[in-house]
Structures are given as C-alpha cells and as structure tokens.
Amino acid sequence: MKKYILIIGILAIVAGVGFGLMKYFKPTKDFAKSEADFSVTAQQLFTEFSKDEKNSSAKYVHNDKTVEISGVIQSISANSDSTKTIILSVGNPDGDVCCTLTQEASVEGKLSAGKSIKLKGQCTGLQELIAKEVILIRCAIVQ
C-alpha cells in the first residue's frame, strides 16, 4: 500500500514539474501558421473599433485571436528592428489600420501603395494619439 502511495506521489510531482516546464517553455503563438478566428476588411475592423473600442477589444484583442485582414495599401515603412509596417487605408482620412510584419515575413517587390493585400496577425488594440489607428503585430502576408 505504502509503495503505491509513493509511486502516485512521485508521478504527481513529475506531472507537476512537467506541466510547469511546459508552461514556462510554451512558445509564443505563431499567428502566421494558426487558423484565422476572424476575417475582416480594414474598413470593417476600423469602423468597429471607432464605434466601440471596449467590445471590439474583447472580440479581437483578448485571448490573442488571429485576425485576418484585407485592404488597400496606403504606405509601407521600415522599422528599426528590420521589420516592415504596412498601413491599410480605411476610406477615412482620420484613420487607418497599421500592420507590422514579423521579422521572418518575406516581402518581395510585390508590395506597393494602391495594391490590395491580405494579412494575418495579432490585433493589439486602438491607438488614438495621432489618428485613430487599429494596430496589428506579428503579421504574415496571406496573399
């Protein structure tokens, strides 16, 4: 009997440590490879956030949902960490959707202002200091 208790005890400890280590080393979600939870246009996403930031955050931002977004490129810029940021127009001069690609994302010469694009990434919320801007990070180009 004592033996069984000991074995169960050891098993519980091993499972506990294993679980802890698994959690600690859990990789960051790969938004490029995960399936999209939502697929929206830049204009739709922007309109939802500018109407109701709180509920839109609950829908898109919390729990790290993967958001697929399509739109027309307004501009492209390079960042200090060698990533690229693609600004999508939303049909409103006071706002846009700002998508920053992952470092791994390959950008061949196919990108230019005025072209349509589909991206997938993590939505982190609405920034309002300069213009109303919905932010996406860790983006990959879908097409």
Partner: peptide, 18 residues
C-alpha cells in the same frame, strides 16, 4: 510631448511572460 503605448504590443521572449 505625448506618448501612447498599447500594452498588448509588448513582445517578450516567452509566451508565459507575455
């Protein structure tokens, strides 16, 4: 001078830290 920072835009090395 003004700044605005979204907490969710901070990227960590480990998912658990984030």
């Amino acid at each position: 001078i003004a700044f605005e920072v979204l907490n969710k835009s901070f990227k960590f090395e480990r998912a658990l830290m984030e």
